[in-house]
C-alpha cells in the first residue's frame, strides 16, 4: 500500500522520502484513471504533511535546547570567576550587587578566600552543594550536552528540509505528468 516508503532513514530514524524516479513506475499511463492519479497525489500530500509536522516539532525541541545554553553559560562564567578570584592572592571580599528579586538589587559580600562550595540548582526542587571544581566540571558537561543536542536537532531539521523538498518536487512532477496524460486523452 505505502508505495512512497523507503528503507533508508537518518541516524535518528527519520525516514527518507522516496524519490519517484519515473512516474510510470507507480502509474500505468495506458490504464490508470483520474482517481488513481488523485490517490497518488493524496499520498504525496500526506507524506508532506507528516514531514512538516515533524519539522515543526523538531524546531520546538531545538529552541528549547537553545534556550538552555545561555543559562548554563552564565552560571559557568560565575563559578569560573569565583575560582579565579579565589586563586588570586587578594584578601578583599568580593563585592556584588545581586538580584534580590526582579528589578530589586541588593549588596552582598562574598568571602572568596574561604569559599569552597557552591550550590547548583538541579531542577525538580533539588539543590546540591558542589566544590568549585566539581561545579565547573558539571556545568561544562551540561553545556557540551546541550550544544550536542542543538547540533543533532539542526542536522535533523536540515534532513527534514531535504525530504520536504523531495516530496514537493515529487508532487509537482506527478501533477505535470498527469496534465500531459490528460492532454493525450483529450479527443483530437
Amino acid at each position: 500500500m505505502d508505495r512512497l516508503k523507503t528503507e533508508q532513514s537518518n541516524p535518528r530514524g527519520i525516514p527518507q522520502a522516496k524519490f519517484i524516479d519515473r512516474v510510470e513506475s507507480l502509474l500505468n499511463p495506458s490504464t490508470c484513471t483520474n482517481e488513481d492519479v488523485d490517490q497518488l497525489l493524496k499520498e504525496c500530500q500526506t507524506r508532506l504533511q507528516q514531514y512538516k509536522f515533524m519539522e515543526e516539532n523538531k524546531r520546538l525541541a531545538l529552541n528549547g535546547n537553545k534556550s538552555k545554553i545561555p543559562n548554563i553559560t552564565k552560571t559557568l562564567e560565575m563559578v569560573q570567576y569565583l575560582k579565579e578570584r579565589k586563586e588570586e592572592d587578594d584578601d578583599e571580599p568580593l563585592q556584588t550587587n545581586y538580584e534580590l528579586n526582579e528589578t530589586l538589587y541588593s549588596k552582598a559580600e562574598i568571602d572568596v578566600q574561604n569559599l569552597d562550595n557552591v550550590y547548583l540548582w538541579l531542577g525538580a526542587d533539588v539543590m546540591m552543594e558542589y566544590p568549585l571544581d566539581e561545579a565547573i566540571e558539571l556545568l561544562t558537561t551540561r553545556l557540551a550536552v546541550a550544544k550536542e543536542a542543538v547540533t543533532v536537532a539542526e542536522e535533523d531539521l536540515e534532513f527534514l528540509r531535504e525530504q520536504i523538498t523531495t516530496m514537493e518536487v515529487n508532487t509537482a512532477r506527478v501533477y505535470n505528468w498527469d496534465i500531459t496524460r490528460r492532454k493525450g486523452l483529450a479527443p483530437k
Binding site: R161, E162, V169, A172, R173, Y175, N176, I179
Partner: peptide, 26 residues
C-alpha cells in the same frame, strides 16, 4: 520551491542526482 505555473510544461526529466542537488540547495 513552487509548482510550475498552470499551462507550462516541463519536458526535462528530473534524475535522482538532480533531486539531490535541489535538496542540497534548499
Amino acid at each position: 520551491m513552487e509548482l510550475l505555473p498552470e499551462g507550462q510544461t516541463n519536458k526535462t526529466e528530473v534524475s535522482w542526482e538532480d533531486q539531490q542537488r535541489i535538496n542540497e540547495f534548499s
